[in-house]
């Protein structure tokens, strides 16, 4: 009993006193909106580049390949710092925006591969059936291949989003106060390591677990429509 009272007192001192829980809330908000914006950018990039990757044009394929090779070959933290301290240095751009752009570009490379695999995973017979009916390449792609590709790519796509939420914990490298950083700030202010760390860990876990469940539900819905 004393043990739990002790924990509660510690928790109260570290989190509630001085309103430090607000830091966590702000950090959580930053983490979520940066991840959501980044995944939107990543999805747009991913769509375009996946189409480049399967296009007939050698130039477009090469561009997409160079992009994915470079971005996937460099850790996010390094990219983030390059974007902030080198590429966007002279623009004086808001650090949150740089974070969104960097994470978006990073995520874009992974989404590209996910979509490409999804599109190429659709049986070639589907394309042939579409084309043999007189549909153009684009019409076949848009109405026949992509709807099926989306369904197969969805599970990996959603886990990429969840991975991105976890990866945003490197944002403190460019001094963005994300959830992880909020934990750091509380740790510094209170010199208590375990309460903020465990709290942050639990919040991350709740988000990722919740999203995993949510997406699984969504996938099951989609799968059901398949069966009519």
């Amino acid at each position: 009993m004393d043990f739990f009272v002790g924990i509660f007192n510690d928790f109260y001192r570290v989190m509630i006193e001085g309103g430090r829980w607000v830091l966590l809330l702000e950090g959580l908000w930053n983490t979520i909106y940066i991840a959501v914006c980044a995944v939107l950018i990543g999805t747009v990039i991913g769509c375009l580049l996946a189409l480049c990757k399967i296009s007939k044009s050698k130039v477009l394929r090469a561009v997409a390949n160079i992009y994915t090779t470079i971005i996937r070959g460099i850790p996010l933290a390094t990219q983030l710092m390059i974007f902030y301290f080198v590429i966007f240095a002279s623009f004086g751009m808001d650090r949150h925006l740089v974070a969104i752009i960097a994470c978006g570009i990073n995520s874009g490379a992974y989404v590209t591969e996910i979509f490409r695999a999804g599109i190429q995973g659709v049986d070639i017979g589907q394309t042939e059936a579409g084309r043999s009916l007189g549909l153009s390449r684009a019409q076949t792609m848009w109405r026949i291949v992509i709807p099926q590709a989306v369904k197969t790519a969805l599970p990996t796509y959603t886990s990429e989003f969840i991975a991105l939420i976890k990866e945003t914990s490197v944002l403190s490298f460019i001094a963005v106060a994300d959830l992880n950083k909020a934990g750091d700030l509380i740790r510094n202010a209170t010199y208590n390591a375990w309460i903020p760390l465990i709290t942050v860990a639990v919040i991350y876990l709740l988000i990722t677990f919740g999203l995993t469940k949510l997406f699984a539900l969504l996938e099951r819905r989609l799968a059901r429509s398949d069966r009519g």
Partner: peptide, 22 residues
């Protein structure tokens, strides 16, 4: 060729119906 194919139907060994459509 798309215009030509409208006039040339094709039936495949593996049917190739579109599974996402009724």
């Amino acid at each position: 060729i798309n215009r030509i194919r409208q006039k040339m139907g094709m039936v495949f060994q593996h049917f190739n119906l579109f599974p996402h459509l009724t």
